[in-house]
Nucleic acid binder design. Structure first.
Lengths: 119, 119
DNA sequence: GCTGAATATATCGGACGCGAAGATATTGCG
DNA sequence: CGCAATATCTTCGCGTCCGATATATTCAGC
């Protein structure tokens, strides 16, 4: 898993970091995590869970049946935990780099050539 | 451009935030920005530049010919600047959310049931 | 003077994650 | 009884990315 995680995958792992959850609950948790910016579609969620399970980042925790409806709980594996931590660090560095660049530009938007200061 | 930027695209915009650069120089700049973690391939770079140009996030700044080799400089457009700032904020929130979740798990890895404290 | 590495651009095909849409089944509300 | 909400799963197409390849020029080494 050298490839960087995309946002939906990253937030799914984040949602599972605290405690095991079932798929449908993850949709709501990710929406909350992202302040409603990202609403996961079933295709994205279950596809991602299958991929993450195959990759060994999440594991099936348990299955419950509540009111006749199946709930399949997933949990973060140790590998998934480490991956999420590493990904978070990677993002943190990217954020820092971009912030520094944006600030640098803000300080000196354009070289003051046309304003006719001296010369 | 509602879709979140992928990492290569994000770092290309970051590289351009400070000053206009030509394609080949961006490859080195992105490598430096990511501490060598991400080495852009030509296919990724020029494809991304075309897409970003079409989307209005970057603009052709100027063309130079140095030692018979063409250099095509790109610069961040105001839209690209705003997009990069917004994306950085989005990432910052994701990093914060993940960090909080990882910390929460670290404080209480498992419910202390088996350790037999009291009871 | 030729070869190969570095500079600098471009293009094509495959892989893969994501999103839209719809199917299925159950409970609860009006 | 029909409709919304809960909860799962599947199929299809798109966009992005990467690997590979091509082209052209300069410079270093032999």
């Amino acid at each position: 898993m050298d490839t960087p995680l995309r946002e939906p995958t990253f937030l799914i792992l984040t949602a599972l970091a605290r405690e095991p959850m079932h798929g449908y609950a993850i949709i709501g948790e990710v929406a909350a995590l992202s302040d409603g910016r990202l609403s996961l579609r079933p295709g994205t969620l279950y596809g991602a869970l299958d991929r993450l399970t195959d990759a060994g980042l999440v594991e099936l925790d348990r299955e419950e049946t509540v009111d006749g409806r199946l709930r399949r709980y997933y949990r973060l594996s140790p590998t998934g935990d480490a991956t999420l931590a590493a990904e978070t660090e990677r993002l943190r560095r990217n954020v820092e780099a971009a912030t520094a660049r944006l600030r640098a530009r803000s300080v000196q938007p354009l070289a003051p050539r046309t304003a006719g200061g001296l010369a």
